[in-house]
Design a protein around this nucleic acid. Sequence first.
RNA 1: GGUCUCUUGGCCGAGUGGCUAGGCACCGGUCUGCAAAACCGUCUACUCCAGUUCGAAUCUGGAAGAGACCUCCA
Length: 490
Amino acid sequence: MNKDKIFIYNTLHKKKELLEPITPGKIGLYVCGPTVYGEPHLGHTRPAITFDIVFRYLKHVGYQVRYVRNITDVGHLENDADEGEDKIAKKARLDQLEPMEVAQFYIDSYHFAMDKLNVLRPSIEPRASGHIIEQIEMVQQILEKGYAYVSEGSVYFDVVKFDQDFGYGKLSGRNLDEMISNTRTLDGQDEKRNSADFALWKKAAPEHIMKWNSPWSLGFPGWHIECTAMSTKYLGDHFDIHGGGMDLIFPHHESEVCQSTVANGIESVKYWMHNNMITINGQKMGKSLNNFITLNQFFTGDHPLLEQAYQPMTIRFFILQAHYRGTLDFSNEALQAADKGYKRLMTAVATARELSPTEGAENIGIQKIMDECYDAMNDDFNTPITIAGLFEAVRITNSIKDGNLKINKEELTLLNQLFQAFVFDIFGLLESELGGDDQLVDGLMQTIINIRTEARAKKDWATSDLIRDELAKLDIVLKDGKDGTSWSKK
RNA sequence: GGUCUCUUGGCCGAGUGGCUAGGCACCGGUCUGCAAAACCGUCUACUCCAGUUCGAAUCUGGAAGAGACCUCCA
């Protein structure tokens, strides 16, 4: 395995870099998780699946990986309100629920959807509300080191001072002077020394529900401190990979760089990875744009933009067909294409298990395909190229089944290993939904197929076609092959 | 307005200075009682203009269009 040759595109340096773990054999991975104040939507799947693949692949090649993905259940401010207001709290007031009740509800929704998509649970899934103490301690450290100041009960990070000493904007490529000169007037900026400063702790307004005691005020943590506090706690001062959506580069991740540089005395993250967005009609899909489709709507097909329901695995495959750093445009046509491709792949995977080897058959290059798949994954997790390799294997599998090609025993074993490794272990695709996993249904289907086979033997096409047509109404497709009839769900 | 990115065939999407991924759709063929599936084949692109080069879709410059970030957002 080419475990020593994985290249990752590092946003910090805008180029692909060889992955060299800080501790040999071990990887610390932190990914910004969901803010749990709404239903999980298609946009949430991109980072979840992107980093699920990273997690799975690194483990597959032999690394011991600790994957930390947080849950933000506190702290993000809502800008369209007159005053800064905690998102969770706002939703809670509208719904007349406890804030934590709302958070719990959406955490459960998120987990339910991610389970359906076969996204592995991270090693640790810390909640921001459970780490208020750690966040307060980190704010204190930053204050003690002189890179923050207290103002009206709130604490702000002194970006100007940071820029002088360390240089600001390394990750997002932003220039502080330009930023300051371009600043728009926003509410509450009078408390800050400079418009570019960001909050580490915010004093809560009287009507604010979620708030905690701190040395400075009854309030809540700033927008960015939770990730720095939690990543430091579970992965240490210096860890390997920090991931998230591209839209988080600024200001969220840039602020994390500031915080960790000061609090930990080191730029904590070695490789920054950012996934691109999913677009809909060329536009970003997002809650605030009101053009998002929840995952549940995908699973049920209940949305004006959806022509049909889509299986979770179709969505997973759809996402894997694009490279994670490119935008991916949603459309029914694209999803339906993904659905068909996914089913063709899974059918071939099942077929491959049933193939028989031919003694002395010539080598047909399975090892080469295997190598190409690993090379593609090692090249910044290039799943589309890997999929192209898998479809080459699909073509070979089907050709063998049709008797147009022969395979020897060694290569047949390798072929099945290829599918097992990439389709299941690394891509995390499931085949259960294709049917055939229910003994009762299998038995019933076999009986029906037997009756039809008899009818066909008697050239009773009326009965034969009736059975096929009736089953078709139930979305069950019969396939008459040389070695009998098989079936699958549409 | 500032910063940045992108523009590939009917659709989705890789990629590289020359040998032109892959999926889906379409069309033709094989197979089939007829289908479906499968296999084989066909079609074959790189926004525009100029430059560098023996050779560019790939490098450089310019134009047009689209998008992202600058404000919560995956």
